[in-house]
């Protein structure tokens, strides 16, 4: 599913965020990226989201070399992804329902389909009763569940999550991980960046440890 070859990312100050990284992630895999702050976890996710381009090497996702995509191909590629961030990134002026339906709305999905799928997703994350609330009225855990519902409503082949439990307590963190495990069980590839080793231990999936932009441990 994901193939990174001699991947490097050099920032202008001469600091390598990633250095000669080689990594293969199989289709349907659930993988943790871990390591201390500044290890390069978020940089790798940004390259996978095609928010940035590698300085050297290349990364291929589902056969697409991300370095050579046109802006329209980038749009099409991102539509096949789901993403979850530490800070949730919900649109504050939109209701919970609108936030989840937003992706389908801008993709021109017919309204009845939007409504049906949004409701199904909200039910799945257990927040259908809060669908008219604004994000600010929800707790952190609830907001992250909404963000996950939004990431998955479009049935992506790949879900990227950057410290999705960074703002949550251990019980809520596990709850979020269970949602991601559930979607993984249905065949979606999931990549989660986290520095929480305890969480990785509790979830028990393959983890790749990064430090100073290099892989130091695969387990």
């Amino acid at each position: 599913m994901i193939e990174a070859r001699h991947l490097s990312k050099l920032y202008s100050r001469g600091v390598y965020a990633l250095r000669d990284l080689n990594l293969t992630i199989a289709k349907g895999e659930f993988l943790f990226l871990t390591g201390p702050s500044g290890a390069g976890k978020s940089t790798l996710l940004r390259l996978l989201l095609r928010e940035e381009l590698p300085s050297e090497g290349e990364v291929t996702v589902a056969g697409r070399n991300l370095s050579v995509l046109s802006s329209q191909e980038v749009q099409a590629y991102r539509r096949s992804l789901g993403f979850v961030f530490q800070d949730f990134r919900l649109i504050p002026r939109m209701s919970v329902f609108q936030n989840v339906a937003f992706v389908m709305r801008v993709l021109g999905v017919p309204v009845p389909v939007q409504q049906r799928r949004t409701f199904q997703m909200l039910k799945w994350v257990g927040l259908q009763h809060r669908m008219n609330a604004l994000p600010d009225e929800l707790s952190g855990g609830e907001q992250q569940r909404i963000a996950i519902a939004r990431a998955l409503v479009n049935e992506p082949q790949l879900v990227l999550a950057d410290e999705p439990t960074g703002n949550l307590d251990p019980d809520l963190s596990l709850e979020i991980m269970n949602l991601l495990r559930e979607i993984n069980a249905r065949g979606t590839t999931v990549v989660v960046a986290t520095h929480d080793r305890e969480l990785i231990r509790r979830v028990g999936r393959r983890a790749v440890t990064l430090d100073h932009g290099r892989i130091t441990e695969v387990g």
Partner: peptide, 16 residues
């Protein structure tokens, strides 16, 4: 701006 970033991340077409 945040909304636009999110739109770009979900691959919304430029027209949107």
């Amino acid at each position: 701006r945040d909304e636009i970033v999110i739109m770009q991340l979900v691959g919304a077409p430029t027209a949107y």
